[in-house]
Every structure is written in structure tokens, then in C-alpha cells.
Write a protein that binds this DNA or RNA. Structure first.
Lengths: 196, 196, 196, 196
DNA sequence: TATGAATGAGAATTCATTCAT
DNA sequence: AATGAATGAATTCTCATTCAT
């Protein structure tokens, strides 16, 4: 039953992540329980309160980013240059935007240490990948790991329905434009990078 | 008396817009009434329900964009090239991001015709301005009005607190990067524009 | 409407006090609302949360004790000796026991200043009445105001149903016995009074 | 094996009794299971539902009173007069008050026959002890067994925190006063005893 | 038989909306 | 027409009890 329960916990986590991305921060705990095919009590047995669930989903997402970055560091280390574009693809597909929008609203101002820690190490690995990408001139020299991630995160946020409808494919286009803004082009902005 | 009532309605609208931008979608109707110094009943007399208020705020915002675009068309028509950067500045200052985030969540899937209409004419004027800007090579040839507006809208959305804190100035940096992505650079992407 | 609302608030307060005494601490907020013939929302508009309602009921009760004590001081001051027994009667009828049982469980460990204050002044007045009663040899010299009140409070608590049923009138009998324990009888216990 | 199971049941019972006295009626079943070092399932195998556990604890408590009374009858029968005060001490130490408060709230209006029966026989034995005590003039002639037990029970109930804090030692003082009220003093109240 | 995971009814609280004054 | 009190549905969370292993 141990593994059974664990499987169920994972299921709830995945479901919650999906629903947060799809319906935003306001999704009711009961909807998450329903979509996971468990009773509300089971949801609460696994995640003592809403903020805890939000925290776990956040960690889950950060872990995905970190794993992708680690792979990218490996592959770029072996001069497999296709790795970089695939990394960006992965980040985009992770739906960081939808999630971070939903989660950002809810995370308490003072985020728990676990998130801070994982965020830190994640950014660190992303920075390593970035360093390698810069050496191959795959990206602007002044971009930081933080900027890369939040940049993709922000640009993949779901658009207001009205806009999304009026112009299908808009989201991908905007992503592309931001990626273009990160392309190497030393002449453009010697700029002072913000954040780390 | 008539104008008195009108003034009051405008006041509520402005207050709501401010509060939506500041506190997001979850702001309570009563808070809006309080901040407007009217009773909740008066708020509801002016806006029959929350979605209607949201709709009006959206229209208000679109109108601002349209007005700015109109001025820009005028000035660019007279070859006042500083007008373009000022237009972008204005769009950024309008806080489109914060607002559209708050409003986007709430607008019903089937947005009222009024919004669609104003959006259409707004985009049209923006496209005119854009056309002039392209002639002056102030912006990439393949950017559409819709992309410009939503691009600025999306990139000026408030960041999750955790990120914002970790890297102050990040938001401006991301805006800059997206603007860079829109800079004229014919070589980069002959791309097929999406949306209109 | 102002006075209407006030009347309603008082009604809720009275109802809550009654229900706390009758059904104990666990009575649901909704039951109180129902019994008051108001919606649950109205209950919460008047008392922002359960502890606030509990506090108000407590203050209401203390005020009753204080008023009774004040009258008693007046009457004893005029050597109306029947006042004392009537005071005790009143305290008993106030149902202090049922209430304090219900309320005691709920009041936070650190009771709000308002309760502390009113309790202090109440005990003070009771002590004045007590002083006069002692001069007339109506009560043991070593009894304090605090002891008188909590003594009556504790002995009028509702008995477990099983006992109450087995012996109707038991509660009154116990009250009587405790009152007997407070009768003047200098020989019995020169005891050191506890508390104040 | 049989005795093993029995031992476990007794352990749960003792634990529950302690927790009821300590934390009141609201203690959760799971806390009782935890404190007993058994799973919640085991608790429910031994006591089919909360009221049953409450009933068993009540019986346990009544049995203690009965045993103490039986000893007292024996000793008083041999004119060991110290037995009486020790009996009172024992009743006080049994923490009848805390328990009966917790249990009283929960016992269904129609208490099971087992409780009624044990209560009856308990009161009977207490009455025998009382008879002997009266012959030795250790207690008022008009006190009944029921009154003695519930009197001690009620006066040893835990006081609301606010009062307890304001006056440490208050509880013992009140107990003493009630005991004083039961001291032999034929002149005081020829009163009609209530209950049996 | 012991365990602890699962369940869902119930409790406190919030907030959009309606209604009496 | 303005006000703010009243309403109740929706939401978060708890805990007694059941059930699968």
C-alpha cells in the first residue's frame, strides 16, 4: 500500500500542476481532488493545505527545469550544439508561464526555503549551460540564467482569451520574438544585466 | 446631475482599473466600492455585475491604447520620429501587463462584441502607426499590431514575487529584450507573421 | 436601518448566549444564525469570527454580573439586607456556569484586554458588595469576590445528563451546599484565601 | 494472545481517559490512537465508535469510584475514621471533574443501561459509606451519595483559563468550600435532599 | 488482526449580488 | 438614487468512520 499511496500522491501532484496551468490560481481544491479521482480528504492527507500543494507543484516544475539544464550542460560539453535549441524548446513546452502565473499569485511573500534553495541551484545549472552557449555564440553575452528562465516564463503565460482567439499562434510568435531578442547581436545592447 | 452621475461612474472605473492592476483579479467588489468612496449598492447600480465592470475597464484600457496610437500616427505622419519610442514608452507605462493579467482571467470565454470591436479598431490604428514606423525602419517588418500590443502586455505582467525579489529590475530588462526582439533586423527571421 | 441593524445584532448576541449555555461550546455558527433567523452572512457581518462572538457574549455576561453587583452595593449601603440573597439568586439565574463552561473552552489563552478590564472592574464591585455583606455577617470573612463568582459559576455548570436525570433538582442542591460552605462560620476555616 | 489483546484494549482505555481529562471532549480519535501507539483502525476494532469509547471511559471512572467506596465501607466498618477523609481525597484526585465535563458533553441523552446500572450500584455503595460517616458525624446528615459525588465532580472541573490564571489555587479553594458546605452542621439546613 | 489510507459530511469563513430603507 | 445590511452559494479545511492491504 505504501507504493500505491505514493503513486496516488504523484497523480494528485501531476493533476494539480496541469489544472493550475490550465485554469489558473483560483482552481478549487475540490476540483483538483475530483480530477484526480480522489476524495477531498485524500488530497488533504497528502498536502496539508493549499499552500503546501502549491509549493510542491513549484518544486516539481523547478526540478524539471533543472534536469533539462543538466542534460544541456552535458551535451553542450560534448559540443552537441543542437542541445541548446532543444533546451529552449523544452523550457517552452514545460508551460512555465501558465504555471508560474498561477503559482506566483499564491506563494507567500516569504517563500519557503526549499523553493529558494532549488531555485538557486536551478539557476546555477542554467547559468552553466548558458556559459557554454555563449562560448558557442548561441546567445547574447549579457543574458543571465534568471533572465532566460523568467523571460520564457513570462512570454509563455496564457494570453487573455480575447487576444488568443483573435490571433491563433500568437503565443508562439511572441516566444519567438523574445528568443530573437536574446540572439547574439553584440552591437545592440552592451546593457547592464539585471538580477543574476 | 447627469454629469455628476457620470463623474462618479468614471471615478469608480478609474479606481477599479487601478486596483485590478495593483491587486490582481481577486480584488473584492466591496474593496473597489470602498476605495471609490461609494456604497457597494452604487457600484452595482453603475455596473450590473463584476464581468460588466471588467469589460468596462478593458474598454477603457483599449481606448487608451487607441488614443496613443492615433497620436503616434499623426506625429509619424509629420515625420516626428521621436513619436515611436514615446509610443512604446506609453504602452509600457499603461501597465497593460498587470491589467490584462487581472482582466484576462475574468473575461468570459465569449467576450462581448464591444470589446471585440474596440480591439479591432485599436489594432487597426496601431497597424497604421506600425506601417509608418516600418517605413522609417524603426521596427521589424514582420511585426503586427497585435503582436506589438500583446508583446508589451505580456512582458510587463508582474512577476512572481520570488523572482521579482531575487532580481530587481528584471521586469524592465525583459521588456528591453523583447523590444530588442522587435528591432529591425531583416536578416534574422523572414518569418511568417501569426495573427493580425 | 441603523437601529434595525442594532436590534438584530442584539438579537444574535442574545441567541448566541442562550445557545452556548444550552448546547455548549460546540454549537455551530450556522445554528446560531438559524436560531436568530438570519443568514450566516449576517452573523459574520456582525461578528467577524467565532472568537469575536464568544468575546462579546462573555462581555455581555460580565456586564450583567457587574450591574447586579452595583445594585447590591447600593441596597446594602442602605441596609437593605434582603439585597444579598437576591444578589446570589441573580448570579445563579444568570446561568454563569453553563456559559463559562462554553466560553472558557474557546477563549484564547490570552484573553483580549476588554474582557480582562471588565472582569477586573466587575470583581472590584463584587468585592465592595462582599465587604458590606461581611459587615452584616452575611458571608464568611475569608471569601473573595473571585471565589464567590467562580464558585457560583462552577456549581451551576450543567451536569452530565446521566446525573441530572437520575436526580432532578441536584443542581440546585449543589448550589445550596456551596452557598452553605460560604455561610459565616468563623470556627470552620480560618483558611488562607486563594486568588483575589 | 487473548490477554495481549486485552492489555491493548486497557491501554487504549487508559490513554483515552487521560486525554479526555487533559484536553477535553474535543480530542480527536486519531490523537487517542497515536498516544496509545496503535493505528486508528485498531482503536475502532476495540471501540466501534466514539460514543462507545466514551461510555467505556465513563464506566472505568465509575468503577474507580465504586472501588474506593467499597474500601471506605470496609474501613469505616472497622471504625478506621481516617478512611473518610482519604475517600474524599481519592474522589478529588480521580479528576472526576475534568472527565465528567469531557464525557458529559458526549454521552447521548439516553445513556446506555450499563452506565445507569453501574452508576446505581456505585451510588448505593457510596451511600453505605455515607451512612457510616454520618453515624460518626463526619458529614451532614442530609447529604446523599449522588450529591457527594457530583458535588466533588462539579467543583473539580477545570476552570476557564482566564479565571484559573487570575487566581492560582482557586480550584482547591472552591473544593474546600464545597467540602465545608458538607461538614456536619445540623442547624444549617434541615433541607429536603434532592435525588438519591 | 493491525495498519493507515480513503472518504465525505460538516464547520468556519468569504464575497458576489440583492433588497429594504 | 445612494446606502449598506442581508443573503447564501462556494471554498478551505477537519475529523469520525470505513476499507483495502
Amino acid at each position: 500500500m505504501r507504493s500505491d499511496a505514493l503513486r496516488r500522491r504523484e497523480l494528485i501532484l501531476r493533476t494539480a500542476r496541469q489544472l493550475f496551468a490550465e485554469h489558473g490560481a483560483n482552481i478549487a481544491m475540490e476540483s483538483i481532488a475530483d480530477a484526480s479521482n480522489v476524495g477531498i480528504g485524500t488530497l488533504y492527507r497528502n498536502f496539508a493545505a493549499r499552500p503546501e500543494l502549491v509549493e510542491e507543484v513549484t518544486l516539481d516544475m523547478l526540478q524539471d527545469v533543472k534536469s533539462a539544464a543538466e542534460q544541456t550542460v552535458d551535451r553542450l560539453g560534448q559540443h552537441d550544439l543542437t542541445a541548446w535549441d532543444e533546451f529552449l524548446e523544452t523550457l517552452i513546452k514545460l508551460n512555465l508561464g501558465a504555471l508560474s502565473e498561477a503559482l506566483g499569485v499564491q506563494l507567500p511573500a516569504t517563500v519557503g526555503g526549499r523553493i529558494m534553495d532549488l531555485q538557486r541551484t536551478t539557476v546555477k545549472v542554467v547559468n552553466e549551460a548558458l556559459e557554454l552557449a555563449k562560448q558557442e555564440n548561441l546567445i547574447r553575452q549579457d543574458i543571465t540564467g534568471n533572465e532566460l528562465i523568467t523571460g520564457i516564463g513570462i512570454v509563455t503565460r496564457p494570453l487573455p482569451r480575447a487576444f488568443a482567439k483573435a490571433a491563433p499562434g500568437l503565443s508562439q510568435r511572441l516566444t519567438r520574438i523574445m528568443m530573437d531578442g536574446m540572439k547574439p547581436n553584440p552591437s545592440l545592447h552592451p546593457a547592464t544585466p539585471a538580477g543574476s
